[in-house]
C-alpha cells in the first residue's frame, strides 16, 4: 500500500469516525426520554448511552477504522462496523420519539461504507477494473450521488413550484434568528425581510441537489463536493445546520475514488 492510499484511507476513516460519533451523540440518555419507543421501550438501553460505554464504543470504532485504514482485517472490520452501526441506528430510531428524520440522515455515510464493503469484498474484479477496491470505491460514490439526488427529488415531488416561495424560508430563518449573536443574527434578520433572496438560495440548493448524479463521474466529484460545500455553508449561516458528516464523507470519497488503486497503477490504467 502506498503512502497516498494509506493517507486517503485514514482521512476517510476519520470522516466515518466523525459520522459515527455524531450518530451516537444523537442518542440522548434514555432516562431523559419521556416516551421511548421500539426496542428501547422493551429493553433498558440506558447503560449504552452513559458516558463511559458511549466513549468506549466510539474508541472501539475509531481503533477498528484505523486498523482498516492500515489494511488490517480487510473483510472482518468493515462488516463488524456495519453491524454495530446498524444496531446503534436501530436503538437511536427507538430513542427519537418524534425526530426519526435525524437518524435517517445520519445513516448516509454508512450507506456509502456498506456499498464499499459489498463492492470491494463481494463483487468480482473485471478487466476494466482490475481490482475489487475500485468497484467498492465507485459503489460508495454511487450511494452519495443517490442521497443528494433523492433529497432534491423529494422537494420537487412534495413541494413542487411552491418550494420557491421564499416567504416560507424567511419564516424558518426568523425562527432561528435569535440563536446566534451578531453578525449572524443581523444577516438572518435581513434575510427575513427579503424573501426574494431566500427564494434564490432555495433555487441554488435545489439545483445542487438535483445535480447529484454528476458525482457519478469521477472527474466531477471534487467540483460537486465544492458546490455542496457552498450549499451547506448557506444552510449553516441561515438555519444553523452544517451536516459535517455528510459533507466530509463526500469530499473524502471524492479524493479516495479519483486516485488510482494499486492494481490500476500496476497495469497502467489511465
Amino acid at each position: 500500500m502506498t503512502r497516498l492510499e494509506r493517507t486517503q484511507r485514514l482521512v476517510l476513516a476519520t470522516a466515518l469516525f466523525v459520522a459515527f460519533v455524531g450518530m451516537l451523540w444523537e442518542c440522548p440518555p434514555v432516562t431523559q426520554l419521556p416516551f421511548p419507543k421500539g426496542l428501547s421501550a422493551w429493553i433498558d438501553m440506558a447503560p449504552l448511552t452513559q458516558p463511559i460505554p458511549r466513549y468506549s464504543i466510539d474508541a472501539l470504532v475509531g481503533v477498528l477504522l484505523v486498523l482498516w485504514a492500515l489494511r488490517k482485517g480487510e473483510v472482518v472490520i468493515p462488516i463488524f462496523v456495519v453491524l454495530l452501526t446498524f444496531f446503534l441506528s436501530f436503538i437511536e430510531e427507538g430513542f427519537h420519539a418524534t425526530t426519526a428524520d435525524v437518524s435517517q440522515g445520519k445513516s448516509m455515510p454508512f450507506a456509502a461504507w456498506i456499498a464499499y464493503v459489498i463492492g470491494s469484498q463481494f463483487v468480482r474484479p473485471t478487466v476494466d477494473r482490475p481490482d475489487a477496491e475500485r468497484n467498492g470505491r465507485e459503489m460508495a460514490a454511487g450511494t452519495v450521488a443517490a442521497g443528494y439526488t433523492m433529497a432534491g427529488l423529494s422537494k420537487v415531488f412534495r413541494d413542487g413550484a411552491s418550494w420557491f416561495d421564499g416567504r416560507s424560508m424567511a419564516m424558518m430563518i426568523a425562527e432561528r434568528a435569535d440563536e446566534w449573536p451578531d453578525p449572524i443574527h443581523s444577516i438572518r434578520v435581513f434575510m427575513t425581510f427579503h424573501p426574494g433572496l431566500c427564494a434564490a438560495g432555495m433555487g441554488f440548493a435545489l439545483v445542487v441537489e438535483l445535480c447529484g448524479l454528476t458525482y457519478l463521474k469521477r472527474e466531477w466529484r471534487f467540483r460537486y463536493a465544492f458546490a455542496t460545500f457552498l450549499m451547506h455553508s448557506g444552510i449553516r449561516l441561515l438555519l444553523g445546520y452544517f451536516h459535517i458528516d455528510w459533507w466530509s464523507n463526500m469530499v473524502t470519497i471524492a479524493w479516495w475514488s479519483t486516485s488510482k488503486t494499486e492494481a490500476e497503477r500496476a497495469v497502467g490504467d489511465p
Binding site: F86, Q104, M108, D159, S168, M169
Partner: peptide, 19 residues
C-alpha cells in the same frame, strides 16, 4: 426508507404553507 441503511433525506421538503 427509513430502515437503515436506506434513507430519503427529505429535510426542508415540507416548506409549503409554512407561513
Amino acid at each position: 426508507a427509513p430502515r437503515f441503511p436506506f434513507a430519503v433525506v427529505d429535510m426542508y421538503a415540507h416548506m409549503q404553507d409554512h407561513h
